[in-house]
Write a protein that binds this DNA or RNA. Structure first.
Length: 264
DNA sequence: TTCCATGTTCCGCA
DNA sequence: TTGCGGAACATGGA
C-alpha cells in the first residue's frame, strides 16, 4: 500500500539494505518497470555504481548514485522492496532485481507491474516536471501555508488531499484515516472549512502520517482508535461503535463513520 | 464469472 | 480554469 508512510519505510529499508554496496547487475522482468529509458538504459546506468543516499518526496523515492546521478523509484499500487541473496530465485514476473558484488540483492517487487525505477538527473527537477506539490511532512507546511493551499479550492476535501499536485504523499487509505481523525466527511468542500477545521486537518494529517511511519506502515500496528484496520464491510467505528460506511468519492471508495463525520 | 483494489495518466465534458 | 467521471494500465483476490 505505497503511500507516504509506506515509502518512508521503504526508504529506511533501502538505506539499511542497499546503500554503499556496488551494483553488479540489474535485471527488469518487464520493460515498463525500468521507466521511459527501458531496461537496457537502466542497467547501463547502474551497473558498477553504488547507491549512496536516499530521499523521499511524496510517494516517490530517490536514490543518489556515487557519480552524482539519481534514480527515481515508484511503487504503484502493490510494489515493495525485498532484500536477500543473489542466489534467491527471481519472482516469475513483475520485478527489478539489483545484484550486489557482495552476493546480496534488492528486488523492487511489483506484481501488478505498476511502478518503476528510472534514472533522473535531479530529484528537484523531477518534482517540478511532474508538478508534485509540497511533501505532506515538509517542515515548511505550517498552518499558514496549508491554508494558502486550501484557499479558493472548492473540491471535496478528500479529493484535494489526494491530489499529488497540491500535497504529495497521501493516497486513498491515509486520506480516509486523516479525515476520520479530523472528523471531517470526505465530501466536505475545502472552501467550506473554517480556519479551525483547516488547522485540525493539518495537525491530524501530520500526526497520522508520523504515527503510521512509527508503526512501520503496518495498519495492524496502528494505535487503537484508528480507522485503517477496520476498513471493510461490516466493521464498526472505533470511536462510536456505529457501522462504518463505504462511499464513492473522487472515483475511489472512501470509508468513514457517518456519525463522527457528518455529511455536508 | 464478475467486480474490486492501495498507484498514475489521459480524455472528454461541464 | 477548475472539477469531475471514466477508461486505461496489469494482475490477483474475494
Amino acid at each position: 500500500m505505497p503511500e507516504l508512510p509506506d515509502v518512508a519505510v521503504f526508504a529506511r529499508y533501502l538505506e539499511s539494505n542497499a546503500l554503499n554496496r556496488r551494483v553488479t547487475a540489474v535485471r527488469a522482468s518487464d520493460e515498463r518497470l525500468a521507466g521511459k529509458g527501458g531496461a537496457g538504459a537502466l542497467a547501463e546506468r547502474m551497473e558498477g555504481r553504488y547507491l549512496v543516499a536516499a530521499r523521499r518526496h511524496g510517494k516517490h523515492l530517490f536514490t543518489r548514485l556515487d557519480d552524482e546521478g539519481w534514480l527515481e523509484w515508484h511503487f504503484g499500487m502493490t510494489g515493495h522492496l525485498d532484500s536477500g541473496s543473489a542466489a534467491d530465485p527471481e519472482p516469475s514476473t513483475g520485478h527489478v532485481r539489483l545484484t550486489f558484488d557482495d552476493g546480496g540483492r534488492l528486488d523492487l517487487f511489483a506484481p501488478r507491474k505498476l511502478g518503476h525505477i528510472q534514472p533522473v538527473a535531479d530529484p528537484d527537477a523531477f518534482i517540478g516536471e511532474q508538478g508534485l506539490g509540497v511533501d505532506a511532512l515538509d517542515p515548511s507546511l505550517n498552518s499558514e501555508r496549508f491554508a494558502g493551499l486550501a484557499a479558493h479550492r472548492r473540491k471535496a476535501v478528500k479529493c484535494w488531499l489526494i491530489d499529488q499536485g497540491v500535497i504529495a504523499g497521501i493516497g486513498n487509505l491515509y486520506s480516509d484515516e486523516i479525515l476520520f481523525q479530523a472528523r471531517l466527511h470526505p465530501r466536505r468542500r475545502v472552501s467550506d472549512l473554517d480556519q479551525e477545521a483547516l488547522e485540525g486537518l493539518r495537525d491530524h494529517m501530520d500526526r497520522v502520517l508520523r504515527t503510521a511511519i512509527e508503526a512501520g506502515a503496518e495498519p495492524a500496528a496502528l494505535p487503537a482508535g484508528y480507522l485503517l484496520p477496520q476498513r471493510k464491510v461490516g466493521a464498526s467505528c472505533p470511536r462510536c461503535g456505529g457501522p462504518l460506511a463505504g462511499e464513492r468519492v473522487c472515483g475511489r471508495t472512501a470509508w468513514l463513520c457517518p456519525v463522527c463525520q457528518p455529511p455536508p
